[in-house]
Design a protein around this nucleic acid. Structure first.
Lengths: 205, 205
DNA sequence: CATGCTATGGACCGTTCGGTCCAGAGGTGC
DNA sequence: GCACCTCTGGACCGAACGGTCCATAGCATG
Protein backbone atom coordinates (compact mmCIF):
# COMPACT_ATOMS: atom_id res chain seq x y z
CA UNK A 1 0.00 0.00 0.00
CA UNK A 2 1.77 3.11 -1.14
CA UNK A 3 1.22 5.81 1.35
CA UNK A 4 2.94 8.60 -0.52
CA UNK A 5 0.02 9.90 -2.48
CA UNK A 6 -2.16 12.30 -0.61
CA UNK A 7 -5.68 12.98 -1.68
CA UNK A 8 -7.14 16.13 -0.29
CA UNK A 9 -10.17 15.98 -2.53
CA UNK A 10 -12.46 14.77 0.18
CA UNK A 11 -13.60 16.34 3.38
CA UNK A 12 -12.31 14.86 6.65
CA UNK A 13 -10.66 17.88 8.21
CA UNK A 14 -8.31 15.67 10.20
CA UNK A 15 -5.36 13.75 8.92
CA UNK A 16 -6.89 11.43 6.35
CA UNK A 17 -5.06 8.37 5.10
CA UNK A 18 -6.19 7.79 1.53
CA UNK A 19 -5.67 4.09 1.40
CA UNK A 20 -7.85 1.66 3.25
CA UNK A 21 -10.65 3.96 4.21
CA UNK A 22 -11.01 5.19 0.67
CA UNK A 23 -11.02 1.69 -0.76
CA UNK A 24 -13.66 0.61 1.74
CA UNK A 25 -15.85 3.52 0.78
CA UNK A 26 -15.43 2.87 -2.92
CA UNK A 27 -16.33 -0.78 -2.55
CA UNK A 28 -19.31 0.05 -0.36
CA UNK A 29 -20.61 2.64 -2.80
CA UNK A 30 -20.39 0.24 -5.68
CA UNK A 31 -21.86 -2.76 -3.92
CA UNK A 32 -24.71 -0.90 -2.27
CA UNK A 33 -25.70 0.53 -5.61
CA UNK A 34 -25.53 -2.91 -7.17
CA UNK A 35 -27.53 -4.87 -4.68
CA UNK A 36 -28.96 -2.61 -2.05
CA UNK A 37 -28.02 -2.40 1.58
CA UNK A 38 -29.24 -5.60 3.17
CA UNK A 39 -28.12 -7.84 0.34
CA UNK A 40 -24.49 -6.83 0.74
CA UNK A 41 -22.52 -8.29 3.61
CA UNK A 42 -19.58 -6.67 5.28
CA UNK A 43 -17.57 -9.66 4.08
CA UNK A 44 -18.35 -8.71 0.48
CA UNK A 45 -17.18 -5.16 1.07
CA UNK A 46 -14.07 -6.35 2.83
CA UNK A 47 -13.22 -8.68 -0.03
CA UNK A 48 -13.82 -6.03 -2.67
CA UNK A 49 -11.67 -3.55 -0.81
CA UNK A 50 -9.03 -6.13 0.10
CA UNK A 51 -9.17 -4.96 3.67
CA UNK A 52 -9.33 -6.83 6.96
CA UNK A 53 -12.21 -6.57 9.31
CA UNK A 54 -10.31 -4.67 11.94
CA UNK A 55 -9.73 -1.77 9.59
CA UNK A 56 -13.40 -1.38 8.83
CA UNK A 57 -14.37 -1.07 12.46
CA UNK A 58 -11.45 1.19 13.11
CA UNK A 59 -12.44 3.66 10.41
CA UNK A 60 -16.18 3.21 10.88
CA UNK A 61 -16.90 2.41 14.51
CA UNK A 62 -20.58 2.55 13.70
CA UNK A 63 -20.20 -0.52 11.52
CA UNK A 64 -22.19 -1.20 8.41
CA UNK A 65 -24.72 1.48 9.20
CA UNK A 66 -22.13 4.22 9.37
CA UNK A 67 -20.31 2.93 6.30
CA UNK A 68 -23.55 2.96 4.38
CA UNK A 69 -24.37 6.45 5.53
CA UNK A 70 -21.00 7.83 4.45
CA UNK A 71 -21.24 5.97 1.15
CA UNK A 72 -24.66 7.47 0.47
CA UNK A 73 -23.22 10.85 1.31
CA UNK A 74 -20.53 10.33 -1.30
CA UNK A 75 -23.01 9.26 -3.94
CA UNK A 76 -25.13 12.26 -3.14
CA UNK A 77 -22.09 14.50 -3.38
CA UNK A 78 -21.25 13.12 -6.82
CA UNK A 79 -24.68 14.09 -8.10
CA UNK A 80 -24.63 17.39 -6.28
CA UNK A 81 -21.32 18.22 -7.89
CA UNK A 82 -22.65 17.42 -11.31
CA UNK A 83 -25.71 19.61 -10.87
CA UNK A 84 -23.61 22.43 -9.53
CA UNK A 85 -21.19 22.27 -12.41
CA UNK A 86 -23.90 22.25 -15.03
CA UNK A 87 -25.81 25.00 -13.31
CA UNK A 88 -22.69 27.11 -13.13
CA UNK A 89 -22.28 26.56 -16.86
CA UNK A 90 -25.68 28.08 -17.34
CA UNK A 91 -27.63 24.94 -18.18
CA UNK A 92 -31.35 25.01 -17.60
CA UNK A 93 -32.83 22.77 -14.93
CA UNK A 94 -34.66 20.58 -17.38
CA UNK A 95 -31.47 20.08 -19.36
CA UNK A 96 -29.53 19.14 -16.27
CA UNK A 97 -32.10 16.54 -15.30
CA UNK A 98 -32.03 15.17 -18.83
CA UNK A 99 -28.26 14.88 -18.77
CA UNK A 100 -28.40 13.20 -15.39
CA UNK A 101 -30.90 10.72 -16.76
CA UNK A 102 -28.84 10.09 -19.85
CA UNK A 103 -25.76 9.50 -17.73
CA UNK A 104 -27.67 6.99 -15.66
CA UNK A 105 -28.97 5.32 -18.80
CA UNK A 106 -25.50 4.93 -20.31
CA UNK A 107 -23.96 3.54 -17.18
CA UNK A 108 -26.76 1.08 -16.64
CA UNK A 109 -26.62 -0.12 -20.21
CA UNK A 110 -22.88 -0.59 -19.91
CA UNK A 111 -23.23 -3.02 -17.04
CA UNK A 112 -26.28 -4.77 -18.40
CA UNK A 113 -28.54 -3.23 -15.76
CA UNK A 114 -26.87 -5.05 -12.92
CA UNK A 115 -26.16 -1.78 -11.21
CA UNK A 116 -28.09 1.42 -10.72
CA UNK A 117 -26.92 4.87 -9.88
CA UNK A 118 -28.53 7.13 -7.34
CA UNK A 119 -29.78 5.70 -4.12
CA UNK A 120 -33.21 4.28 -4.79
CA UNK A 121 -31.95 0.79 -4.09
CA UNK A 122 -30.79 1.91 -0.68
CA UNK A 123 -33.54 4.38 0.12
CA UNK A 124 -36.29 1.86 0.48
CA UNK A 125 -34.27 -0.27 2.88
CA UNK A 126 -33.29 2.27 5.47
CA UNK A 127 -35.23 1.61 8.63
CA UNK A 128 -35.16 2.17 12.35
CA UNK A 129 -32.28 -0.27 12.70
CA UNK A 130 -30.07 1.87 10.49
CA UNK A 131 -30.57 5.43 11.74
CA UNK A 132 -27.50 6.96 10.16
CA UNK A 133 -28.23 5.41 6.79
CA UNK A 134 -31.78 6.70 6.90
CA UNK A 135 -30.58 10.16 7.81
CA UNK A 136 -28.09 10.14 4.96
CA UNK A 137 -30.80 9.20 2.48
CA UNK A 138 -33.08 11.95 3.71
CA UNK A 139 -30.24 14.44 3.45
CA UNK A 140 -29.37 13.30 -0.06
CA UNK A 141 -32.89 13.78 -1.40
CA UNK A 142 -33.32 17.06 0.41
CA UNK A 143 -30.02 18.30 -0.95
CA UNK A 144 -30.80 17.46 -4.55
CA UNK A 145 -34.23 18.92 -4.30
CA UNK A 146 -33.03 22.17 -2.76
CA UNK A 147 -30.32 22.50 -5.35
CA UNK A 148 -32.64 21.91 -8.27
CA UNK A 149 -35.21 24.23 -6.80
CA UNK A 150 -32.64 26.99 -6.80
CA UNK A 151 -31.80 26.30 -10.42
CA UNK A 152 -35.44 26.35 -11.46
CA UNK A 153 -36.08 29.49 -9.46
CA UNK A 154 -33.07 31.06 -11.11
CA UNK A 155 -34.62 30.61 -14.51
CA UNK A 156 -37.75 32.45 -13.57
CA UNK A 157 -40.16 29.88 -12.17
CA UNK A 158 -42.28 31.09 -9.30
CA UNK A 159 -41.55 29.68 -5.86
CA UNK A 160 -44.16 26.95 -5.68
CA UNK A 161 -43.63 25.99 -9.27
CA UNK A 162 -39.86 25.74 -8.83
CA UNK A 163 -40.31 23.63 -5.75
CA UNK A 164 -42.74 21.35 -7.54
CA UNK A 165 -40.44 20.99 -10.50
CA UNK A 166 -37.53 20.04 -8.26
CA UNK A 167 -39.62 17.47 -6.43
CA UNK A 168 -40.86 16.06 -9.69
CA UNK A 169 -37.33 15.82 -11.03
CA UNK A 170 -36.10 13.82 -8.11
CA UNK A 171 -39.04 11.47 -7.91
CA UNK A 172 -39.08 10.90 -11.65
CA UNK A 173 -35.37 10.15 -11.72
CA UNK A 174 -35.62 7.62 -8.93
CA UNK A 175 -38.73 6.03 -10.36
CA UNK A 176 -37.20 5.83 -13.80
CA UNK A 177 -34.06 4.21 -12.46
CA UNK A 178 -36.11 1.53 -10.74
CA UNK A 179 -38.28 0.90 -13.76
CA UNK A 180 -35.31 0.84 -16.12
CA UNK A 181 -33.49 -1.62 -13.97
CA UNK A 182 -36.40 -3.97 -13.61
CA UNK A 183 -37.26 -3.86 -17.29
CA UNK A 184 -33.61 -3.90 -18.36
CA UNK A 185 -34.38 -1.02 -20.66
CA UNK A 186 -33.30 2.59 -20.39
CA UNK A 187 -36.39 3.96 -22.12
CA UNK A 188 -37.98 5.31 -18.93
CA UNK A 189 -34.88 7.36 -18.23
CA UNK A 190 -34.82 8.79 -21.72
CA UNK A 191 -38.44 9.86 -21.47
CA UNK A 192 -37.70 12.23 -18.63
CA UNK A 193 -36.09 15.19 -20.35
CA UNK A 194 -39.09 16.21 -22.44
CA UNK A 195 -41.36 15.62 -19.48
CA UNK A 196 -39.50 18.03 -17.21
CA UNK A 197 -39.07 20.47 -20.04
CA UNK A 198 -42.80 20.45 -20.59
CA UNK A 199 -43.53 20.93 -16.94
CA UNK A 200 -41.18 23.86 -16.59
CA UNK A 201 -42.16 25.52 -19.85
CA UNK A 202 -43.73 28.96 -19.55
CA UNK A 203 -47.44 28.98 -18.88
CA UNK A 204 -49.65 28.24 -21.78
CA UNK A 205 -51.82 31.14 -22.92
CA UNK B 1 -38.34 -15.77 -21.15
CA UNK B 2 -40.75 -12.99 -21.80
CA UNK B 3 -44.17 -13.60 -20.39
CA UNK B 4 -43.27 -14.68 -16.93
CA UNK B 5 -46.42 -16.66 -16.44
CA UNK B 6 -46.57 -16.14 -12.73
CA UNK B 7 -49.31 -18.26 -11.39
CA UNK B 8 -51.16 -15.79 -9.28
CA UNK B 9 -53.81 -18.35 -8.48
CA UNK B 10 -56.26 -15.59 -8.01
CA UNK B 11 -58.65 -16.41 -5.23
CA UNK B 12 -58.48 -19.87 -3.74
CA UNK B 13 -59.75 -21.91 -6.68
CA UNK B 14 -59.96 -25.13 -4.71
CA UNK B 15 -61.62 -25.85 -1.42
CA UNK B 16 -60.92 -22.66 0.40
CA UNK B 17 -59.12 -23.07 3.69
CA UNK B 18 -58.88 -19.50 4.90
CA UNK B 19 -56.15 -20.72 7.09
CA UNK B 20 -52.46 -21.12 6.97
CA UNK B 21 -51.55 -20.43 3.37
CA UNK B 22 -53.64 -17.29 3.30
CA UNK B 23 -52.26 -16.09 6.58
CA UNK B 24 -48.73 -16.65 5.38
CA UNK B 25 -49.39 -14.65 2.25
CA UNK B 26 -51.00 -11.83 4.13
CA UNK B 27 -48.13 -11.60 6.57
CA UNK B 28 -45.58 -11.75 3.76
CA UNK B 29 -47.35 -9.04 1.79
CA UNK B 30 -47.45 -6.75 4.76
CA UNK B 31 -43.91 -7.32 5.96
CA UNK B 32 -42.30 -7.09 2.54
CA UNK B 33 -44.04 -3.79 1.94
CA UNK B 34 -42.90 -2.58 5.32
CA UNK B 35 -39.27 -3.47 5.19
CA UNK B 36 -38.36 -4.88 1.84
CA UNK B 37 -37.41 -8.41 0.97
CA UNK B 38 -34.01 -8.98 2.51
CA UNK B 39 -34.79 -7.25 5.75
CA UNK B 40 -37.63 -9.64 6.55
CA UNK B 41 -36.76 -13.08 7.81
CA UNK B 42 -38.90 -16.15 7.40
CA UNK B 43 -39.10 -16.27 11.16
CA UNK B 44 -40.80 -12.87 11.15
CA UNK B 45 -43.34 -14.06 8.61
CA UNK B 46 -43.96 -17.24 10.53
CA UNK B 47 -44.50 -15.31 13.74
CA UNK B 48 -46.85 -12.81 12.12
CA UNK B 49 -48.86 -15.62 10.53
CA UNK B 50 -48.73 -17.80 13.65
CA UNK B 51 -47.65 -20.70 11.48
CA UNK B 52 -44.93 -23.30 11.92
CA UNK B 53 -42.03 -23.65 9.56
CA UNK B 54 -43.18 -26.90 8.08
CA UNK B 55 -46.31 -25.32 6.73
CA UNK B 56 -44.44 -22.62 4.89
CA UNK B 57 -42.28 -25.08 3.00
CA UNK B 58 -45.24 -27.29 2.37
CA UNK B 59 -47.26 -24.53 0.72
CA UNK B 60 -44.28 -22.80 -0.85
CA UNK B 61 -41.63 -25.40 -1.69
CA UNK B 62 -39.60 -22.66 -3.35
CA UNK B 63 -39.11 -21.05 0.04
CA UNK B 64 -38.84 -17.34 0.65
CA UNK B 65 -38.29 -16.61 -3.02
CA UNK B 66 -41.53 -18.24 -4.06
CA UNK B 67 -43.45 -16.72 -1.18
CA UNK B 68 -42.19 -13.29 -2.17
CA UNK B 69 -43.13 -13.86 -5.78
CA UNK B 70 -46.68 -14.86 -4.95
CA UNK B 71 -47.00 -11.99 -2.50
CA UNK B 72 -45.90 -9.54 -5.15
CA UNK B 73 -48.41 -11.10 -7.50
CA UNK B 74 -51.14 -10.46 -4.95
CA UNK B 75 -50.12 -6.86 -4.47
CA UNK B 76 -50.05 -6.39 -8.20
CA UNK B 77 -53.47 -7.95 -8.51
CA UNK B 78 -54.88 -5.58 -5.91
CA UNK B 79 -53.77 -2.61 -7.94
CA UNK B 80 -54.84 -4.19 -11.19
CA UNK B 81 -58.27 -4.77 -9.79
CA UNK B 82 -58.55 -1.18 -8.70
CA UNK B 83 -57.55 0.16 -12.10
CA UNK B 84 -59.93 -2.18 -13.82
CA UNK B 85 -62.82 -1.19 -11.63
CA UNK B 86 -62.24 2.51 -12.09
CA UNK B 87 -61.73 2.13 -15.81
CA UNK B 88 -64.94 0.16 -16.10
CA UNK B 89 -66.67 3.00 -14.29
CA UNK B 90 -65.48 5.31 -17.02
CA UNK B 91 -62.80 7.17 -15.10
CA UNK B 92 -60.06 8.81 -17.12
CA UNK B 93 -56.53 7.50 -16.81
CA UNK B 94 -55.21 10.59 -15.13
CA UNK B 95 -57.99 10.41 -12.57
CA UNK B 96 -57.29 6.78 -11.85
CA UNK B 97 -53.62 7.49 -11.24
CA UNK B 98 -54.56 10.37 -8.99
CA UNK B 99 -56.89 8.19 -6.96
CA UNK B 100 -54.24 5.52 -6.70
CA UNK B 101 -51.79 8.10 -5.43
CA UNK B 102 -54.29 9.48 -2.95
CA UNK B 103 -54.99 5.98 -1.68
CA UNK B 104 -51.30 5.42 -1.17
CA UNK B 105 -50.97 8.76 0.56
CA UNK B 106 -53.78 8.03 3.00
CA UNK B 107 -52.52 4.61 3.89
CA UNK B 108 -48.98 5.79 4.41
CA UNK B 109 -50.09 8.66 6.59
CA UNK B 110 -52.19 6.28 8.66
CA UNK B 111 -49.18 4.19 9.58
CA UNK B 112 -46.81 7.09 10.00
CA UNK B 113 -44.91 6.17 6.83
CA UNK B 114 -43.61 2.93 8.24
CA UNK B 115 -45.12 1.03 5.35
CA UNK B 116 -45.44 1.66 1.67
CA UNK B 117 -47.83 0.29 -0.87
CA UNK B 118 -46.83 -0.91 -4.31
CA UNK B 119 -43.63 -2.82 -4.73
CA UNK B 120 -40.85 -0.30 -4.97
CA UNK B 121 -39.35 -1.55 -1.74
CA UNK B 122 -39.15 -5.03 -3.18
CA UNK B 123 -38.35 -4.17 -6.77
CA UNK B 124 -34.87 -2.90 -6.14
CA UNK B 125 -33.90 -5.98 -4.18
CA UNK B 126 -34.78 -8.71 -6.61
CA UNK B 127 -31.62 -10.20 -7.95
CA UNK B 128 -30.21 -13.28 -9.56
CA UNK B 129 -30.59 -15.19 -6.31
CA UNK B 130 -34.34 -14.63 -6.30
CA UNK B 131 -35.47 -15.44 -9.86
CA UNK B 132 -39.14 -15.90 -9.12
CA UNK B 133 -39.36 -12.68 -7.17
CA UNK B 134 -37.65 -10.80 -9.97
CA UNK B 135 -40.02 -12.27 -12.53
CA UNK B 136 -43.01 -11.34 -10.42
CA UNK B 137 -41.84 -7.75 -10.16
CA UNK B 138 -41.32 -7.52 -13.91
CA UNK B 139 -44.75 -8.96 -14.50
CA UNK B 140 -46.34 -6.54 -12.06
CA UNK B 141 -44.90 -3.46 -13.71
CA UNK B 142 -45.63 -4.76 -17.18
CA UNK B 143 -49.20 -5.53 -16.19
CA UNK B 144 -49.92 -2.13 -14.72
CA UNK B 145 -48.33 -0.39 -17.65
CA UNK B 146 -50.24 -2.39 -20.22
CA UNK B 147 -53.50 -1.82 -18.40
CA UNK B 148 -52.99 1.91 -18.09
CA UNK B 149 -51.89 2.14 -21.69
CA UNK B 150 -55.17 0.61 -22.72
CA UNK B 151 -57.08 3.13 -20.63
CA UNK B 152 -55.18 6.05 -22.08
CA UNK B 153 -55.59 4.73 -25.59
CA UNK B 154 -59.29 4.36 -24.92
CA UNK B 155 -59.62 8.03 -24.23
CA UNK B 156 -58.10 9.00 -27.51
CA UNK B 157 -54.37 9.28 -26.99
CA UNK B 158 -52.28 8.11 -29.92
CA UNK B 159 -50.32 4.88 -29.48
CA UNK B 160 -46.94 6.27 -28.54
CA UNK B 161 -48.46 8.92 -26.36
CA UNK B 162 -50.62 6.42 -24.52
CA UNK B 163 -47.64 4.18 -23.96
CA UNK B 164 -45.58 7.08 -22.68
CA UNK B 165 -48.32 8.20 -20.36
CA UNK B 166 -48.63 4.71 -18.91
CA UNK B 167 -44.91 4.44 -18.36
CA UNK B 168 -44.83 7.86 -16.77
CA UNK B 169 -47.69 6.96 -14.47
CA UNK B 170 -45.97 3.87 -13.15
CA UNK B 171 -42.59 5.46 -12.73
CA UNK B 172 -44.00 8.54 -11.07
CA UNK B 173 -46.08 6.49 -8.66
CA UNK B 174 -43.13 4.40 -7.58
CA UNK B 175 -40.83 7.38 -7.33
CA UNK B 176 -43.38 9.33 -5.36
CA UNK B 177 -43.91 6.47 -2.94
CA UNK B 178 -40.18 6.27 -2.26
CA UNK B 179 -39.83 10.00 -1.82
CA UNK B 180 -42.90 10.25 0.35
CA UNK B 181 -41.68 7.50 2.60
CA UNK B 182 -38.22 8.90 3.02
CA UNK B 183 -39.47 12.42 3.67
CA UNK B 184 -42.38 11.20 5.76
CA UNK B 185 -44.61 13.48 3.77
CA UNK B 186 -47.26 12.58 1.25
CA UNK B 187 -46.80 15.73 -0.81
CA UNK B 188 -44.99 13.99 -3.68
CA UNK B 189 -47.92 11.62 -4.12
CA UNK B 190 -50.43 14.43 -4.15
CA UNK B 191 -48.49 16.26 -6.85
CA UNK B 192 -48.99 13.47 -9.33
CA UNK B 193 -52.56 13.91 -10.46
CA UNK B 194 -52.13 17.33 -12.06
CA UNK B 195 -48.89 16.18 -13.60
CA UNK B 196 -50.43 13.23 -15.38
CA UNK B 197 -53.46 15.26 -16.29
CA UNK B 198 -51.23 17.84 -17.89
CA UNK B 199 -49.28 15.24 -19.79
CA UNK B 200 -52.36 13.58 -21.16
CA UNK B 201 -54.20 16.78 -21.95
CA UNK B 202 -55.19 17.16 -25.59
CA UNK B 203 -52.51 18.65 -27.80
CA UNK B 204 -52.62 22.36 -28.07
CA UNK B 205 -53.96 23.24 -31.49
C1' DC C 1 -61.13 -50.52 10.61
C1' DA C 2 -57.35 -49.85 7.31
C1' DT C 3 -55.27 -46.91 4.04
C1' DG C 4 -53.41 -42.92 2.03
C1' DC C 5 -52.91 -38.15 1.53
C1' DT C 6 -52.55 -33.35 3.00
C1' DA C 7 -51.30 -30.28 6.47
C1' DT C 8 -49.08 -29.22 10.78
C1' DG C 9 -45.79 -28.82 14.57
C1' DG C 10 -41.07 -28.13 15.67
C1' DA C 11 -36.48 -29.98 16.41
C1' DC C 12 -32.51 -29.54 14.09
C1' DC C 13 -28.91 -28.36 10.55
C1' DG C 14 -24.98 -25.91 8.33
C1' DT C 15 -23.98 -21.35 6.85
C1' DT C 16 -23.48 -16.68 7.12
C1' DC C 17 -24.34 -12.61 9.43
C1' DG C 18 -22.52 -8.19 11.84
C1' DG C 19 -19.53 -7.33 15.41
C1' DT C 20 -15.65 -7.85 19.06
C1' DC C 21 -11.05 -8.43 20.53
C1' DC C 22 -6.26 -8.32 20.68
C1' DA C 23 -1.50 -8.93 19.06
C1' DG C 24 1.67 -6.38 16.59
C1' DA C 25 3.45 -3.51 12.57
C1' DG C 26 5.00 1.03 11.45
C1' DG C 27 5.61 5.63 12.29
C1' DT C 28 6.60 9.91 15.34
C1' DG C 29 8.21 12.58 19.30
C1' DC C 30 10.72 12.45 23.73
C1' DG D 1 16.31 3.60 23.47
C1' DC D 2 11.60 4.19 24.91
C1' DA D 3 6.88 5.38 24.97
C1' DC D 4 3.01 6.26 22.42
C1' DC D 5 -0.19 6.27 18.84
C1' DT D 6 -2.68 4.96 14.63
C1' DC D 7 -3.71 1.41 11.73
C1' DT D 8 -3.66 -3.41 10.19
C1' DG D 9 -4.39 -8.37 10.29
C1' DG D 10 -7.37 -11.99 11.35
C1' DA D 11 -9.09 -15.33 14.86
C1' DC D 12 -13.14 -15.67 17.13
C1' DC D 13 -18.08 -15.10 18.77
C1' DG D 14 -23.13 -15.50 19.57
C1' DA D 15 -27.12 -14.80 17.03
C1' DA D 16 -29.85 -15.15 13.22
C1' DC D 17 -30.36 -16.76 8.77
C1' DG D 18 -32.92 -19.94 5.22
C1' DG D 19 -33.81 -24.57 4.76
C1' DT D 20 -34.43 -29.82 5.81
C1' DC D 21 -36.50 -33.58 8.10
C1' DC D 22 -39.76 -36.38 10.21
C1' DA D 23 -43.34 -37.72 13.43
C1' DT D 24 -48.08 -37.20 13.59
C1' DA D 25 -52.80 -35.03 13.46
C1' DG D 26 -56.91 -34.64 10.64
C1' DC D 27 -59.79 -36.30 7.31
C1' DA D 28 -61.18 -38.10 3.44
C1' DT D 29 -61.65 -42.58 1.11
C1' DG D 30 -61.38 -48.27 0.25
Amino acid sequence: MGGAAIETSTETPEISPPSTRTRLLGAAKDLFQSSGFHAVGVADILAAAAAPKGSLYHHFPGGKDELGAVAVGRIAADVTGFIEARAAAGAKGAVIVGQLAEMCARRMENVDFRWSPLIAAVASQAGADTPRLAAAVVAAYAGWQAQLEKVFAGEGLAGAKASGAAQLSVLALEGAVILARVQRNAAPLRSLAPLIAGFTAPERP
